Computed example of a mutant assay.
Amino acid sequence: MRVVHVVTLVSDDGAYGGPTSVAAGQLEECAARGHEVTLVSLWRGRSPAPARLGSVPLRTRPARSLLPGRFTGLMHPLLVRDMWKAMGRADVVHIHAGRDLVSLAALAVAALRRKRFVAQTHGMVQPRRAVAVRLFDRVYVPLLRRARGCLVLTEHERRDVAQVIGAGGPPLVTLPNGVRPEHEGGAEQGRGEREVLFLARLHPRKRPDAFVEMAALVHRRMPDARFTLYGADEGMLPKVHRLIAAHELEAVVSYGGALAHAEAVRAYARAAVYVLPSVDEPFGMTVIEALRAGTPVVCTDTCGIADELAHRRAAVVTDGSPEDMADAVCGLLADAGKRAALAEAGRRAVTEVFSVHAVTDRLEAIYRRVSRPQSPPQGFLRPIG
């Protein structure tokens, strides 16, 4: 089967986050199963774009800001031509669709080429009342409605997407994100006994400021604990620096900038605890990556997979307050047995629920249905999960 994915941005600092890593992981597994795969995207980095992302052939153009917004207005005119050529031979097109120019162009090209396509929204398509969004949606939503199926992560996202596209739209299919499980015990080498990690965009929703407030509380009880933040700055770095100075944590809390994927994997493996203070996190791909590395996780009860992890005792789920997160972190740092049990449950959750193998099994079934010439445009996909 010839499979083409489109995602908005690939970059050397991983700025676009989950959608890019999900697309690459899905395509790598599809390629390993004998499918012919291509990823089409913009590229932003200090060096020329690579020809491949892992084992996945990559077709890119340099990202240009044509409209305001961190990702919304990114585009390159020749990327449309690349989409047209790549989709021409495809049996299935898979568009990782946010509200941005690349996604809009991909949806339009797929419709013009009369290609059967699925869309995956990654929590990025939510009801919005801003005038600019409503104008964008006049073109975007009719194109999104032409998808043969729309892949959503959670029931919350299902409700959001249903509200945006309205009644009679494509079937909404629940599909979790997946990662490739690590060999058990492989990540334990070099793990710090007192290192607490934040690895996400420094965006208000990710709450890096709450991480620093939590660090201050933990430091009072465990002075030997150390805290590191990694991630591209999206407006919160000045506040993070101010809080570090206000709490006199310069020797305890550090910011290491954005990391490439390979560096991020090593950072997870070094940490004793990973903390994601995000509120209303649609899924939490960084949580899954930390679990894969065997790193105990502390998250909030509004993370999209918090209920599943709590049920499996695979993470410590908090109310998101610095005080509750600090209690969770101190409890883990003080108890190696608790950390080991949480790590084992986390790895098991990855294998059984969030493995890219299990996810791709479901994705292949979706692709087979989409690629059938006799497939009707709507109603043929039953929700999965």
Rank of each mutant, 00 (worst) to 15 (best):
C330Q: 06
T360A: 07
R339N: 06
R313H: 09
R362K: 14
V316I: 09
V316E: 05
F354P: 07
T360I: 02
V317T: 01
A349K: 03
D361T: 11
A328Y: 04
R348E: 15
D319I: 07
L332P: 04
S355T: 01
A358H: 12
H357I: 09
A349T: 15
T318V: 12
L363D: 05
V359L: 00
D335S: 15
E344H: 13
A345H: 09
V329K: 03
D335A: 04
R348I: 11
R313Y: 05
T318M: 14
R339K: 09
E364G: 14
G337I: 12
R339G: 06
E352R: 14
A340H: 15
V356E: 06
A334Q: 08
A328E: 10
A358R: 15
D324H: 11
R348S: 15
K338L: 07
R348G: 03
L333P: 00
P322Q: 10
A314H: 02
A345L: 02
L342F: 08
H357P: 09
A336L: 13
D327Q: 07
R339T: 05
D361F: 10
L363M: 06
D327G: 02
A314P: 02
P322D: 13
R347P: 03
A326S: 08
G346V: 14
V350Y: 04
M325Q: 11
H357W: 12
R348F: 13
A336D: 09
E344N: 15
L333T: 14
E323I: 06
V350H: 02
A328G: 10
E344Q: 11
D327N: 02
A358T: 11
K338W: 11
G337D: 11
R347L: 14
A358L: 08
E364T: 15
V317N: 06
A345K: 10
A328S: 15
L342T: 12
T360Y: 00
G331W: 08
A358K: 14
D327W: 00
S355Y: 03
A340R: 12
L342K: 07
V316M: 06
A340L: 14
V350P: 03
K338Y: 06
L342V: 12
A336I: 00
R339A: 08
A340Y: 13
A358V: 09
S321Q: 02
A315P: 00
L332S: 02
A358E: 12
D327F: 02
V359P: 01
V353E: 13
A334I: 01
V316S: 01
D324V: 12
R339E: 04
T360L: 07
A345W: 01
A343D: 01
C330N: 01
V356D: 05
R362D: 15
V316D: 07
R339Q: 12
L342N: 03
R312A: 15
E364W: 00
A314G: 05
R313G: 12
R339V: 14
L332E: 08
A336T: 09
G320E: 04
V359H: 04
D324C: 11
P322G: 15
L332W: 09
M325I: 09
A326H: 02
S321W: 10
